[in-house]
C-alpha cells in the first residue's frame, strides 16, 4: 500500500492523494510561515529599526534602520539600571528553587507509583493547582498569608505580623514568592512523571525486589535511570524557561511589582503588554532585548541537553 512506503517525493503520489495532502497541510504551513518564520524574521529586523511618530492624528509611524543602536541601549540599561541586573539574579534564583519542586515531584510520583498509603489522594491534591487557574491559586495564597496567618498568630498569642506578600521588607516578599514557587512546584510535573512511571515494567521491579533491592535504591538505581528521557525533556524545558519565568509576579502584583523583585521574564512581559497598548516606538528595543536574552538561552539550553545526553549514555 502506498501509505507506508518511505522517502517518496510528492510527485510520485497520485493526483487525489496530492490534492488531499496539500489541501490539509497548506493552511497550517502558511500559518507557520507567517506566525513563526515571519514573526522571527520580523523580530530580528525590528531589533535594528527605530520608529518615530510622523502623524500623531492618524498614528502613522516611519522607521529607519539604526544598526546596533537598540542593542547598545539594552547593554547600557543593564550597565546602569540596578534592577535589571537584579532581575537576572532573581531569574536564576527562581530557576534554582524550581529544582526543589522538580525533584520533589519525582519523589512523590514514585510514592504514588508504589501505591503506598493515600497515594491517590496525594496525587489528586498535588494535581489540583494545575487545573485551577494560577491567578486563583495565587489569590487564595495571597489572601491566606495576608489575612489568615497574621490573625492566627495573634489568636494564639503571638506577636502581630503585617503579612508576607505585601511586607514592607522586600526580602520577605521575595522569600514569600520563592516559598510559593516551591509549594506549587511540587505538583507541576506530577502528572507526566506519574504517566511515565506507570510504564516501568512490573517484572523489572519484581526481579529487583527478589534480589533484595530496597525502595530507596530502587528509586535511584532503577526508576530514575529508566525514565531518564522524560527527566531530560522536562529539565531542558526548565532551562529554556529560565528567562521567561515570571516567578508569579504578575499574578501577585499585576503591573505594580517592586522593581527589586523583577525577573527578566516579568520585565519583558510587562513591557510587551504596555507597548502593545501604546505605540510602535518601544517595539525595537524589546525585540533587541529578546534577541540578547535568546543569545544566552539558546546555547545554554542546547549545551545543557548535550550534557544530559552524555550523562544518559552511562545508563545505556
Amino acid at each position: 500500500m502506498e501509505i507506508i512506503k518511505k522517502g517518496k517525493s510528492l510527485a510520485t503520489f497520485n493526483r487525489k492523494r496530492k490534492i488531499f495532502y496539500i489541501a490539509l497541510i497548506a493552511l497550517p504551513v502558511l500559518q507557520f510561515c507567517i506566525f513563526y518564520l515571519g514573526v522571527h524574521i520580523n523580530s530580528i529586523l525590528l531589533a535594528f529599526k527605530s520608529y518615530t511618530l510622523t502623524d500623531g492624528q492618524s498614528g502613522l509611524y516611519s522607521y529607519v534602520f539604526t544598526g546596533f543602536e537598540n542593542f547598545g541601549q539594552v547593554f547600557h540599561n543593564f550597565a546602569t539600571e540596578n534592577y535589571l541586573v537584579n532581575a537576572i539574579w532573581n531569574s536564576v534564583l527562581a530557576f534554582l528553587v524550581g529544582w526543589i519542586g522538580f525533584f520533589g515531584s519525582l519523589l512523590f510520583s514514585y510514592y504514588i507509583m508504589k501505591k503506598w498509603r493515600f497515594g491517590k489522594l496525594f496525587q489528586l491534591f498535588l494535581f489540583l493547582p494545575s487545573i485551577i487557574s494560577e491567578i486563583v491559586v495565587v489569590s487564595l495564597f495571597k489572601y491566606f498569608t495576608e489575612n489568615n496567618i497574621p490573625a492566627f498568630i495573634e489568636m494564639i498569642g503571638g506577636e502581630a505580623v503585617s503579612g508576607f506578600v505585601y511586607s514592607s521588607d522586600l526580602n520577605v516578599r521575595l522569600i514569600s514568592l520563592l516559598v510559593y514557587s516551591v509549594w506549587i512546584g511540587f505538583g507541576a510535573n506530577i502528572l507526566i512523571f506519574n504517566g511515565t512511571m506507570s510504564g516501568v515494567s512490573e517484572s523489572v521491579l519484581e526481579a529487583a525486589k527478589l534480589d533484595g533491592v530496597r525502595p530507596l535504591r530502587e528509586f535511584f538505581s532503577i526508576v530514575l535511570p529508566m525514565m531518564y528521557p522524560t527527566i531530560v525533556t522536562l529539565a531542558v524545558v526548565n532551562v529554556a524557561n529560565i528567562f521567561t519565568n515570571q516567578m508569579y509576579l504578575f499574578s501577585f502584583y499585576g503591573a505594580s511589582a517592586e522593581r527589586k523583585l523583577y525577573t527578566i521574564g516579568y520585565y519583558l512581559y510587562l513591557n510587551t503588554q504596555e507597548a502593545g497598548n501604546s505605540g510602535l516606538s518601544e517595539y525595537p528595543y524589546l525585540a533587541a532585548f529578546g534577541l540578547v536574552v535568546s543569545a544566552v538561552t539558546i546555547p545554554l539550553t542546547i549545551g545543557f541537553r548535550k550534557v544530559m545526553n552524555k550523562i544518559g549514555e552511562r545508563f545505556e
Partner: peptide
C-alpha cells in the same frame, strides 16, 4: 504520508521545541 516534506514537518516541530527564542511577542 511518509515523504520528504512530512519529515521536514516533524523536524520543524522538534527544532522549534528545542530552541527557546525569547521575546517574540512584540513581533
Amino acid at each position: 504520508f511518509r515523504f520528504k516534506f512530512s519529515s521536514v514537518i516533524y523536524w520543524v516541530v522538534i527544532i522549534t521545541m528545542t530552541i527557546p527564542v525569547v521575546g517574540t511577542d512584540i513581533s
